[in-house]
Amino acid sequence: MRLRFDGWIAGIGTASGTRLVLGHWPRSPFGPVSDVMVEHADGRRVLLAPSAELGEFIAATYGFDEVNVVPVTVHRDRDWTVTAGPLALRFTTGPRRALGRLLRAVPPGIARQPLWVRAIDLPARLVMPGVRTHGSAGNGRREWYGVQDLHPVAAATAAWDGAGLGAFTDVDPPVRFGFGSTPRHPALARVTTTVDVPDTMTI
C-alpha cells in the first residue's frame, strides 16, 4: 500500500539544543493534518500529533521516546505560526536560493515520482550531508521525499511550556527520527512524502 503526504517540512534548531521538525500536510491519507517532531538537547525524541491514529502511524514509521496527542494548529501568512501542546513556534522564510531554484525547475510530476527521488538520493547527500531522499523506515516501510522547492528560514522564535528555547540555529546535531535529517541550515521544503506500507499492515 502506497500512501502520499503532500505539503511542507520545516527543520529548525535552537540555542537550547532543542531541534524541531514541522510536517504540514494539507493533503494526506488522514486529511489535512500537521505534526511536530521534537528532539531535546538530552536526546529525548517527542512526537506531537493531533490524533491517536496519526500518532500511531508516524510512530510506526519513525522512532520516538514519547508520543503526545495534542491540538496542532498551523497558520500561514507572511510568517508561519505553529501551536502544538507545549510548543509555540513562529518562523519566517527568506527568498529561495540556487538549490531552491533548481528544485523548482523539475516538473512536479517528475519530482514526486519514487524512481526520480531514489535517483537523486546520492547527489542530495553530497550537497547536504545528513539529508536522504529515500530509505528504509520502521516496520518494513520505505519512504521517498520528493522535494519541489526550498526556502531558508530567515528568523524564528520558539518556546516550550512558555520558556523560550533561545535563538534559532542550525539543526545540529542532526535529528534522529528516521533514516535522515533535515538540512543543517534551517529551511522550509515543499515536499511530497511517499510511504510504502507492507500489505500485511494497516495504517
Rank of each mutant, 00 (worst) to 15 (best):
R2T: 15
D6S: 12
D6Q: 10
A10Y: 05
G11E: 06
I12A: 05
T14Y: 08
S16V: 07
V21S: 02
L22E: 05
G23D: 01
R27M: 02
P32G: 08
V33Y: 00
V33A: 04
V36E: 04
M37E: 08
V38T: 01
H40Q: 14
H40E: 13
A41C: 04
D42W: 07
G43C: 11
R44N: 08
R45C: 07
R45S: 01
V46K: 02
S51Q: 08
A52Q: 13
F57A: 15
I58D: 04
A59E: 04
A59P: 02
A59G: 05
T61K: 04
D65N: 15
D65R: 14
V67D: 03
V67Q: 03
V69P: 06
T73W: 11
H75L: 14
T81N: 13
T81Y: 05
A84E: 01
G85C: 03
L89R: 01
G94K: 06
G100V: 11
R101S: 12
L103D: 06
R104I: 02
A105Q: 12
P107W: 07
P108A: 15
P114Y: 00
L115M: 11
L115K: 09
A119N: 02
D121A: 12
L122S: 06
P123T: 04
V127I: 15
P129I: 02
G130S: 03
G140Q: 10
E143C: 10
Y145P: 00
Y145K: 06
G146E: 00
G146M: 03
G146S: 03
G146T: 05
L150V: 08
A154L: 13
A155Q: 14
A155T: 06
A156D: 03
T157D: 14
A159T: 09
A159K: 03
A163K: 14
A167W: 02
P174N: 10
V175S: 09
R176N: 10
G178E: 01
S181A: 10
P183K: 08
P186L: 09
L188V: 10
A189V: 09
R190Q: 13
T192C: 09
D199L: 15
T200F: 13
M201E: 14
